[in-house]
Design a protein around this nucleic acid. Structure first.
Lengths: 231, 231
DNA sequence: CGCGGCTTTGATGTTCATCAAGTAAAGTGG
DNA sequence: CCACTTTACTTGATGAACATCAAAGCCGCG
């Protein structure tokens, strides 16, 4: 049976640097057979907490959020993954089921590789195993660091932080559309929707940013930086 | 803190279930050669942020804290590791240097295995690799979960939580000595020293706990549980 | 003894969540 | 396409939760 009618050649895919750079030719060919690509529309749920973990996922394009769903829409966002990031986090090797959920913040393409196949690769290719561990490890560090940082900051500092996050890390541009609702921003940096709005308004009257409809423009990068660090 | 002379036989060590259960006889013998045990006194620093990572560490006995050191003693405690826990977290596979610190909360014995040797094992023994990944993965999940949980709780809930943590998970006993100073408790659950004390006092007047010198006694487990969940 | 660190309690002020209410935007059904 | 509903956004007022500041008691240690 042919799984892949989209006749990709993973060995040419720029995304193999995510983890697959250490595979030999044969392994690379197998990989293509165990791989599928899926597209998700903005807002679609990709993984639901409790789902069985059958695949190793990474993001090819778009933007997704990893989150824990709580009661009455009180979700908590764990992290935001951009292309080249793992989506599956580390947890896929610990449990049979996901203990968090994933959904698309923008139209996204997810590459999905059969998990038993990946485990097999880990068993048989030591370099690959170490590479994966190192990548996941770094992912982990970033999330922990983010969580600890949050705790030290006041609300203004947190807002400044995510504005710079989107500007510098995601869009690499001073003008962009925040792919999160105000509520989602609140869930990401642990505060209330009202305060997100309030502080964005403050920043606007202080001429640190401009907001035109959906568009956000960073006006004073340096001051925001300073607020993010010391505010 | 004397280095012992490694006369141990790791194949008999109950701690091999931490990760080494999949090693064959030869690998087990090598392991003993690459392993050292070190003892640390309560309060001693085991690893300092920035130290080169040369070994894979796990805790044989005692209790340690992993923390990020901040300015003027404003540390943040990432997690508390008990015997059978990894000490090195996942980060040892991502970076050449530690980006957190570790110190002993009680007199502790740490087992230390040469990291290149471990990496070698990962490369050559697929079962071992998967096992390690799964264990570290679970570790990661626990820490993330803890961090997210903190965010949802008020101060009283957090205090109730760590009281139960020590009672149920660490000492498995309703009467124990908290191995942390009030300040350290504050660092662990992100609040001020004064409020830790204040709330402990409240709990005492509410007959939820008793405090005799260093000793803490849990009086009303159920009520604490309820505060931890809904407070 | 006296010094410094840890602990405790109280008083004060700030930050932030909650509540309320109103506007804008976006989807829904006739 | 328009009325209708719902969802997102916004602003202000209020009070609660919490940090900060201050001061005093306690304890171990040189």
């Amino acid at each position: 049976m042919e799984l892949n009618l989209n006749k990709c050649d993973c060995s040419l895919c720029e995304f193999k640097t995510i983890a697959f750079e250490d595979l030999n030719t044969n392994e690379m060919i197998s990989l293509c057979g165990y791989k599928t690509e899926k597209n998700y529309k903005k807002g679609e749920v990709i993984v639901c907490k409790g789902d069985e973990i059958t695949d190793f996922l990474y993001l090819k394009s778009g933007l997704v959020k990893l989150y824990k769903a709580g009661k009455d829409g009180k979700d908590q966002i764990i992290s935001i993954a951009k292309p080249f990031d793992f989506v599956s986090l580390v947890s896929i090797f610990s449990d049979a089921n996901y203990n968090f959920s994933i959904s698309a913040l923008e139209d996204s393409t997810v590459c999905s590789v059969d998990l038993p196949f990946i485990k097999n690769l880990i068993s048989s290719n030591g370099k690959f195993a170490l590479n994966i561990m190192s990548k996941m490890s770094r992912n982990f560090d970033k999330i922990i660091d983010g969580a600890l940082n949050l705790q030290t900051k006041h609300l203004r500092g947190r807002i400044a932080h995510i504005l710079l996050f989107f500007s510098n890390e995601i869009y690499k541009c001073g003008e962009f559309e925040i792919p999160l609702s105000r509520k989602e921003i609140a869930q990401l940096i642990d505060m209330t929707t009202e305060n997100v709005i309030r502080i964005l308004s403050e920043f606007r009257t202080d001429k640190l940013i401009e907001i035109h409809g959906k568009n956000t423009v960073i006006l004073d990068d340096k001051k925001l930086q300073s607020i993010a660090e010391h505010g």
